[in-house]
Design a protein around this nucleic acid. Structure first.
Lengths: 340, 340
DNA sequence: GTGAAAGCGCTAACAC
DNA sequence: GTGTTAGCGCTTTCAC
């Protein structure tokens, strides 16, 4: 026998008052609406007693707002993204928003599905790390005036707001740091993806290398989450075949982690001969032996700026204040990039 | 200037037909309701042209169903859970359900919030790996006849359905395998959590050890995601201080991974002297050197059974068919548990 | 101070 | 075959 969930009306009937009154009390507008203290107390007691849970679907239909934001990143298990996610979640909770997380796996089809799914369910805003090829869906959201903030990378053709870092500068500084430590034959291992942040990192590496009068040495791995072992093989082959390399700059933190395993598997002592630096920091790098240097993104600042822009959009739907932010990261030097 | 999103009514008006007709076509009931082929085609063309997206909040309010399920696990980045999650997602999609994933971090407060959040938003069903202390919320859901299936562990006091494995048997088999390989001094490293699956694994270990006439040697690590380094220290200390240990059985895959790092850090050659087996498999174990033996849960079968029970509940809300499943896992022997 | 009632966008029973 | 309409549970304007 099915117990129907109590509705506002059931409560109003039980208490012999109107739904309006119950609704006001429920939303903490009792005082404001000058409902008597006693009535408020009575209603609240009853709400608590029956453990009333409002139907948020109905509320959303009425108010047009779900108070839900989505945070779509490449891979939520990547510590860079999950750290930012965590801060975003905290800020949102404080402002009475919930956050749904999801991983796009950098796959357009999947991302499209996710965007439609959430848009149809009326989420209030999107924070997206856009995979290549997603321009159309993003413009669709923009046309429909759904708040969108891009993160980690921008889409140059699009009038969308974003918070990114200066990838070129970061990569250049990282490479320069290896050069300053005395390394002369610095390889760059990156992901073969046509995305602006990857191009910028590569360009930064090349700029530093050429300024120093060295020659670039680049390995590009296909982006393919399902095929980690084959990436490993490529990295191993590359390292084994280029015996003269004395340092490696990895373009992402997950590449660094794969790379470190490869280096270890080739020869347990090899890690002590190579200079290593990673773009993007990771908890793992502090625990590794040797500790691994990294170019760290300002996680806290990024999350805060992201939410500032998002809340601004949420509040002033009309007013299109364009916010395009390029932040600077910091070089975190640890043992792996000291001169060996 | 805000472009209002078109509603069913806008379409009906534009086409000079009723919302009913549009609704039927939209839901693929055109044929069934004997709407003329031409009209169907016309409506579909229009829907496509304006890129109509139904307001699923309104639909949910009307139908009482969101076609969303939640999958709540300890840590979605744990490969055991994410594998099951992936299969669940696939099955759900085929049945036109979406799945939301979230991590409870084994924290009651967080899990309560999550359950309320989703329940108020009217999700259709919950698949939950219950953290200790969550009994009350689960019974609340059950009382409200919300479909719930527990996973990975049961709550003995509760009349909730579940799909788990035979932890006792698995742990016993794993331990026995190490004994059969000739190890005599087998330690068990587990998590200090008052949860039945952990007790069962410990009991299985002890049973095998005592049958063989050996004595148990157990290390319990506090469950605390935020404090991985201190867990590492405990494991290292334990291994260093018990010089006579010749094998270790880890109670979870994440413990095994921590443990392997510890062993490596103590002495790179140590791994070749110790017998190792892990409860729960992981992709990582096949890549490691040596490859790591594990007691694998039947991921595919678990996910399928889980969804079978869930769909059964979803379809027959009334009929309470109790489904409590205890599946058997399989021992996957790899290099780490061969006699050294 | 409190209540009546409209309406958010959709579905589906019923009417014609 | 297609249209009319009630109603899902809630918020909020307006009336008293």
């Amino acid at each position: 026998m099915k117990k129907k969930r109590p509705s506002l009306k059931d409560i109003a009937d039980a208490l012999n008052i109107s739904t309006t009154t119950v609704s006001f009390v429920l939303n903490g507008k009792g005082e404001e609406k000058k409902i008597s203290k006693e009535l408020i107390a009575k209603v609240e007691a009853h709400l608590k007693e029956i453990n009333y849970k409002p139907n948020l679907v109905a509320r959303s239909l009425r108010t047009g707002s779900t108070r839900v934001l989505v945070f779509m990143v490449e891979d939520i298990s990547n510590s860079h993204f999950s750290k930012v996610g965590r801060i975003i979640e905290d800020i949102s909770y404080k402002n009475d928003y919930r956050v749904l997380f999801c991983s796009t796996e950098n796959d357009v089809k999947r991302t499209q599905d996710l965007i439609h799914l959430f848009h149809e369910r009326q989420v209030d805003g999107f924070i997206i790390v856009p995979p290549p090829g997603i321009e159309k869906e993003i413009s669709y959201l923009l046309e429909n005036e759904v708040p969108v903030v891009l993160f980690d990378r921008k889409i140059p053709e699009l009038e969308a707001d974003y918070v990114i870092i200066n990838n070129f500068e970061g990569a250049k500084q990282s490479t320069q740091h290896l050069i300053d430590s005395g390394y002369k034959n610095i390889a760059f291992i990156t992901i073969d993806l046509d995305q602006i942040q990857m191009h910028d990192r590569e360009a930064g590496y090349i700029a530093a290398i050429e300024e120093a009068g060295f020659s670039p040495n680049i390995l590009k791995i296909p982006y393919d989450t399902s095929n980690i072992p084959s990436s490993r093989e490529k990295i191993k082959k590359f390292i084994k075949e280029s015996k003269d390399i004395d340092a490696i700059f990895f373009a992402t933190n997950y590449l660094s982690q794969s790379g470190l395993k490869c280096i270890h598997q080739i020869d347990a002592k090899l890690i002590n001969k190579l200079g290593i630096i990673s773009f993007d920091d990771s908890n793992f790098f502090e625990m590794y032996s040797p500790t691994v240097s990294a170019f760290a993104q300002p996680v806290d600042e990024m999350a805060n700026q992201l939410m500032k822009i998002m809340f601004n959009k949420l509040k002033n739907k009309e007013q299109a204040v364009s916010s395009k932010l390029v932040l600077e990261g910091t070089l975190v030097t640890r043992e792996s990039s000291l001169k060996k």
